[in-house]
Design a protein around this nucleic acid. Structure first.
Ligand SMILES: [Mn+2]
Ligand SMILES: [Mn+2]
Ligand SMILES: [Zn+2]
Ligand SMILES: [Zn+2]
Lengths: 142, 142
DNA sequence: CATTTAGTTTAGAACTATTATAAATTAGTT
DNA sequence: AACTAATTTATAATAGTTCTAAACTAAATG
């Protein structure tokens, strides 16, 4: 549980002014003990539930992208109709529950290291991500 | 290189009428020796380039989704702003070239088997996909 | 402080990919 | 040939996201 002043320095250190909107968003995103996987819509709903003052949707988009650019959030692509973000910025993989639309972090003990034997010539690997889609037994297979 | 009559039976066998639009789309998609990774927009451009008669965008969407539902195409999610499809319907992984926005199939000899040690209780794995993003050396890291 | 400057927020418009609608057309059937 | 159900099509609608430009605010300056 970080406190407000820590968010202020975190923001200042990355060249972002610690506005009250950004601090509220920090609270929602980073004042939790578990990883938070969210869509912009999830975040917007969470904010309007937990605070009296509302933050404009444009600001939520701006802030999430700023935090992503500064490396405080990762973007996870699972579906082409909305973007997911992740407060866990370490390299890790995901289970995606197709029934609940929830992302779950994989620990290293759940998915072994991915062995990439050959890379494209002249290119550098910028990320390696495994997505394991899961569903109840009575679901369609892939 | 399949011939027209083969597409006709393929479509008939799956309960789809072999209309001239679907047959043209089959030609574009399946009359090639390499895997085709495409967005709807890629496909639409390809069609309008190769044929005199135009196929409505709605039909292209309908057909691609019908083909996906019948298992003739796979949908690959790499970006939240457009959907990619794949004529290679076998289980395989991808490199994604962030410079060119092109998908490249991984052979089994390029990425070793992904070892999933623990699955979510009560759920069945419906797919396991690895996406390796690559870029030129002078690109930002993840 | 008071003033200036640059960064930020905001509502709403614009944009883009995709899906829905409903009328016209076509394929397959009787 | 007539009928029925599937398909195509243009177009409208939708949803997520980005853009715009004016209002506001934090920080810097004197
Ligand atoms: Mn983005
Ligand atoms: Mn789809
Ligand atoms: Zn995660
Ligand atoms: Zn592929």
């Amino acid at each position: 549980m970080l406190k407000n002043s820590e968010f202020v320095s975190k923001l200042r250190n990355s060249g972002l002014r610690p506005t009250k909107q950004r601090l509220k968003i920090c609270e929602v995103l980073f004042n939790r003990d578990k990883t938070f996987h969210f869509t912009i819509n999830d975040l917007a709903k969470n904010i309007s539930k937990n605070f009296n003052e509302k933050i404009s949707l444009a600001t939520i988009y701006n802030t999430v992208h700023a935090f992503k650019d500064k490396g405080y959030l990762k973007e996870i692509t699972i579906s082409s109709d909305k973007s997911y973000f992740d407060t866990n910025i370490t390299k890790h993989h995901h289970f995606y529950d197709e029934d609940t639309n929830l992302l779950i972090d994989c620990n290293d003990n759940e998915i072994g290291k991915v062995n990439i034997k050959n890379n494209i010539t002249g290119k550098k690997i910028s990320s390696v991500e495994v997505l394991v889609r899961v569903a109840s037994d009575n679901q369609n297979q892939n």
